[in-house]
Design a protein around this nucleic acid. Structure first.
Lengths: 231, 231
DNA sequence: CTTTTACTTTAGACACATCTAATCCGTGGT
DNA sequence: ACCACGGATTAGATGTGTCTAAAGTAAAAG
């Protein structure tokens, strides 16, 4: 049996691994979770004892296959909940994260199944994040790049936005920068501020580098993917 | 801030007070929650420090108004969840209790509001238990009696059944003994076994005293109440 | 090659919820 | 009245997750 807290650590390590690749440092985990580094050291030790992470002292940690499976399970819960709350309980895009965080550890396998069925076995959540499949094979996120890495003139489709900061989500929602929307980069300022033309109505919108870094984009058209359709 | 565990204690004390009236004994709480008596003594002390229960040592405890409000809030969550799971996620009558127990401590006020709205502000859950109103005034359960206290020949309407034992619920569901159903007591055996004719199809069903004690009934017809209608 | 600096880990403490073992009421039986 | 017995409480220990303060390590800067 794994505690809620352990699940949170595994989810955090997974997320950080996705963002920066392994190994993940103690202080990054601490900052991500709002804990102190000694707390993280202690917890990571317990996770190692259970075979959920590999660790090299003073270097960092990496999820084992088993640890990754747990993280994917939690992430599946989280993202199914986000999708369900948005679709069936009238939550807005920016409200769902905290609710899903609170509930993700406490739903049964049965609940997970029924929510997935009610949604029609979706493959992405409202933010565009991929929902791990029921068999918990790692989802493939290749083919995406960060908006902050793109150049002026690039035409792109928004694939994913971060769900961590409600204020940022609110802003992006207003701006029309949502998964499935086509955008074009019109300017990049020296300090990283990216300006984009959004969708068909030609609105221009500037985004600080810190935000652009959290937006994942893919090339437009090319009939390869499926799910997202501009509403 | 109150822990999940404290909420469970308050809910347990509330339930026991409803069943047997105050004060509630340490060992009854311990048995209800599956804890040992010293654990309960210790927890009850903390609840007293916070002004949630009144206690007389070696006698028992009773909820304060504040403690009762917390219990009602938790109960409202629990019963709204039971109703929602049954109505919108295809749960059966007997499956909902454990899921609701796990989730009741972790839903936000917002979630509570939206679930209540999605259900049309219901006043009873699927077992017939009254759902405390949003303002948390104590629900009125007068006018109900236990099936085990009734006499041969009585015609009654089932008002509530206990949601504690899934096997019992399964059995009652099979038997057609559900809230809103009209029944007639046809026999009472010396050791308390009650036999009833159920609904319109004249099936007879015998229920041990331990079960009959958990079924609450009210007199039939008399246009006074509203919500339950035999489906 | 040494020193500084940034980060990590160890040490020690605390709060919570739980247990077992031992002690302590209070009441019902004699 | 007394005493015994059942139930309640105290005492003391355990496990988890957290913190602050102190010590340790590794890598960059001089």
């Amino acid at each position: 049996m794994l505690s809620d807290v352990m699940e949170d650590y595994l989810k955090a390590i997974y997320t950080l691994q996705m963002e920066q690749g392994p190994p993940v440092s103690t202080s990054d985990i601490a900052e991500y979770l709002g804990k102190t580094p000694p707390t993280v050291t202690s917890m990571v030790g317990k996770l190692e004892d259970r075979g959920l992470v590999d660790r090299e002292k003073y270097k960092g940690v990496e999820l084992t296959t088993e640890g990754e499976t747990v993280a994917l399970e939690v992430l599946r819960h989280h993202r199914l909940l986000e999708a369900y709350l948005t679709e069936h309980l009238d939550y807005s895009w920016s409200e769902v994260h905290d609710e899903a965080d609170a509930l993700e550890h406490h739903i049964s396998e049965e609940f997970e199944k029924r929510v997935a069925a009610a949604l029609g076995e979706p493959e992405v959540d409202p933010h565009g994040d991929p929902i791990p499949s029921a068999d918990l094979t790692p989802p493939d996120s290749s083919g995406l790049s960060a908006l902050s890495e793109c150049g002026v003139g690039d035409r792109l489709v928004v694939a994913r936005v971060s769900d961590r900061d409600p204020a940022e989500l609110e802003y992006l929602s207003e701006a029309g920068v949502t998964p499935g929307t086509t955008i074009e980069v019109t300017d990049i300022a020296p300090f990283g501020m990216v300006t984009v033309r959004v969708g068909d109505d030609g609105r221009e919108q500037s985004l600080p580098e810190s935000v652009a870094r959290t937006i994942r984009v893919r090339p437009p058209d090319e009939p390869s993917s499926e799910e997202v359709s501009p509403a």
